[in-house]
Simulated scan of single mutants.
Amino acid sequence: MEHESPRTVRIALGSRSYDILVGPGLIAGAGREIARRLPGARAAIVTDETVAGLHLPALLASLGAAGLEATPIVLPAGERTKSFEQLVALVDRLLELRLERGDAVIALGGGVIGDLAGFAAGIVKRGMRFVQVPTTLLAQVDSSVGGKTGINSPRGKNLVGVFHQPDLVIADTSVLDTLAPREFAAGYAEMVKYGLIDRPDFFAWLEENRPAIFAGGAQRAEAVAQCCRAKAVVVEEDEREDGRRALLNLGHTFGHALEAGVAYDPARLVHGEGVAIGMALAHRFSARLGLCPPEDAARAAAHLEAAGLPTRIGQIPGAGFTCEALMGKIAQDKKVKRGRLTFILTRGIGQSFVSDDVDPAKVEAFLKDEIDAR
């Protein structure tokens, strides 16, 4: 497996087009791939304390073998690193290194590192080159692709950021073997999302192949590549989320509210778990509105549960959520337009759509029942 050719997914965005390389053992050749696209560039590798101990030496060796000078910047691990404080510190460090616009910021880590490093790359000197080397399943299938970057605010998740496309994404599926089971499952939620949006055949394939994907091997790499292809189609059509790209937020309006509700405490809830609950809520809410067959809502939840993911608000440790607090977080969501609530709803498995005028009273009544449910 370590010697198989990588799968290449192209994101076609004119002058901002780039490749996503997917497969095992790719970090060993990362220096060669980066040097081919950014010859002579110096680099800052932004990573966190956990990932640095696992994968930084291999990436540094690869860059060195390709003749690229690279300086590591190691940040604390965890969602709370996506903050103004860490952004300011990172920007200052990049400026201290005297990197030029043509030099590269390389994000080595999960979604937190990718979002933060990409934001810094997008604003330092009005835009530096940027390479993603995602090390979590969630980052490989979602956050590293499409150019969304940003940080969290106390008022909500990902409310401050820019669109800044990478020059290359290297998704080494071998590194996923180092993930804790809970973190792998959290990333799998984003994988399931693509099937639930508009690929019912892919969802059925996941139902059949989930054990093999969790075990590793060819099915895992193929699943990651399929997700990247699905996202590529949407990003090419709607780069800045003015229309169809909003479908990629299936489950995220509820999920982000839950994450903010626990103050981004990973002991209680990580992003993928919030998305899993959010997708289950979106399907049950759609069923309640008469849009989605109840059996499809049950099928979606059953698959998430089989993967070890939560599907109910009451499964969050120390829940303590109030409807008022969750509605307040939802009202701060980026997908609110002129005060109207926008949700991704569904007519069944693989039949999601954007609804931009959802009645807040119906959402509130639904959430009250869900908070009380066990």
Rank of each mutant, 00 (worst) to 15 (best):
A267E: 15
Q315K: 09
I151R: 01
D92S: 14
C228D: 00
A276W: 08
Y264H: 08
P360C: 11
F254C: 06
A28L: 12
A267C: 09
L159K: 03
S355A: 15
A35Y: 03
G216P: 04
G339L: 11
T149E: 04
Y264K: 02
G274Y: 05
K368Q: 14
A77D: 14
L13Y: 02
L289K: 10
I170C: 02
K193I: 00
V363G: 02
A267D: 13
G110E: 09
A221S: 15
V354A: 02
A306T: 13
A117W: 01
E4Y: 09
V358C: 08
T71S: 13
I123M: 06
G29I: 10
P76E: 13
A300M: 12
V91N: 05
G109P: 04
F353Y: 15
V112M: 04
A43N: 03
E69G: 10
D115C: 05
K231G: 04
K148A: 03
D103T: 00
G78N: 07
F163K: 03
T322S: 15
V105W: 00
V224K: 00
E49Y: 09
G350T: 09
E295V: 03
R16A: 14
H164M: 04
L97Y: 08
A287W: 01
Q140A: 05
P134A: 06
L21N: 00
F343M: 15
A121H: 01
I27D: 00
A361N: 11
V131G: 00
V9H: 01
V363F: 01
T149Q: 01
V112P: 02
L269R: 04
A77Y: 10
F130S: 01
L63F: 12
L94I: 11
V9I: 15
Q315G: 10
L367N: 03
S17P: 05
R268M: 13
L26C: 06
S5D: 15
E4M: 13
G308L: 05
L289V: 06
L63A: 07
E324R: 14
A107L: 04
R7L: 15
E273I: 01
